[in-house]
Design a protein around this nucleic acid. Structure first.
Lengths: 215, 215
DNA sequence: ATGGACACGTGATGC
DNA sequence: TGCATCACGTGTCCA
């Protein structure tokens, strides 16, 4: 195989041709991709053509990726290359954040599902409207617990929107979404009542022991 | 305002200068961005410089975004432009899929947390090893339910690994992860025992009614 | 007419 | 050496 450099030396006199403005203009504007058959053909031109075509393939590949990105990106208004990249970056960051949140939310929920080892009682406003209150409590599972909680709630004329409960190892965790308080004094009364409920010792030979599923 | 075309005609003799290889080389390698003050200055060169600098800013913007992508993409081995785009596409698709899965999973979990309106009892092998069995049941909440379930479990010498419970509107949903069966006959016995438990009518003036939180 | 966006060919660099 | 990638300036089209 003969090298391009050697060939270049042999055809050096012709260099003036392909360095001329005419040739350059021709190649730059509308490159002839067919192999020329006349006497002006030489191997350096072939190398340049190979080079430009390789570059063209590279551009094609990259532009293909841009096209792909344009299809998979939602909310893409400007299809500009820079805009595509910008929107891509925004999307990736947003998605990463969302995934992180959803995963930790799942983990938190999972964590939240297990009762605390020590008795726990928390009341907090869930959000502003309607006086919604979220109550979270952990205590030993024992007979009459649910009815005691129910009585505590009705003592403040509260309505329960949602209840979630989990029992593990003889202990219980309960989340209540409550509404209908008459002012803040209701919360105080409810808190005292619930506190008594969860701290009330279970009877000897207690029910809680009996329903402990774990050996 | 004088047009660039007109200016070009006036300074045509100088075209040979900025089209020369020397100038071209100089500009390509280390372009002088300061406005030249000598006699070689002319407006077409200014226009070309403006154009090239605008193009340079565009490249800079795009390359900056590539750099950003390189920083936020995990598992990026080749920092190649095409590779960056490829990895980006893969990441976006993967993240979108993950988000979708996590959201539907959350929805499914949420659905699963609410007790069924009709009594329900399902036993299924959770996975192959250790004879793990998942039991799902929905029934009316009533006094002694948990202890009844506990007794049913101990009757087949089963150990509970995990319990999840939800109570809504006086009904209860319970998921048990159980192990320790002696063969399949244990499952049959357990299923019968649980069936009796969940179908057992609550006593008159029942406990279940009392603990119904909803008005 | 002016700036933005794009494709192109080319020289340079690294493996 | 050849091959791939990159930055650059330029010509061209469009709003």
């Amino acid at each position: 195989m003969i090298s391009l450099q050697q060939l270049e030396k042999e055809v050096k006199p012709i260099q003036t041709y392909y360095k001329s403005a005419t040739y350059s203009k021709q190649v730059v504007s509308y490159p002839e991709r067919d192999i020329p058959t006349d006497a002006t053909f030489h191997y350096k031109e072939l190398a340049a053509k190979k080079h430009s075509e390789a570059e063209r393939r590279r551009r094609l590949r990259i532009n293909g990726q841009y096209a792909t990105l344009r299809t998979i990106l939602p909310n893409l208004v400007k299809t500009d290359k820079a805009s595509v990249l910008e929107e891509t970056i925004k999307s990736v960051r947003e998605l990463q954040k969302t995934v992180k949140e959803l995963k930790t939310e799942g983990r938190d929920r999972h964590k939240c599902e297990f009762p605390n080892e020590v008795n726990e009682l928390n009341l907090s406003y869930s959000n502003g409207d309607g006086g919604l209150v979220k109550a979270t409590l952990s205590c030993e599972d024992k007979p009459g617990l649910l009815s005691d909680i129910g009585r505590a709630l009705s003592s403040v004329k509260a309505t329960v929107l949602k209840v979630e409960m989990a029992t593990v190892g003889g202990r219980i965790k309960c989340e209540l979404l409550i509404q209908g308080f008459k002012g803040n004094e209701g919360m105080v009364i409810l808190k005292r009542a619930l506190k008594i409920v969860i701290d009330k010792p279970s009877l000897p030979g207690n029910y809680g022991k009996k329903i402990c599923f774990y050996k």
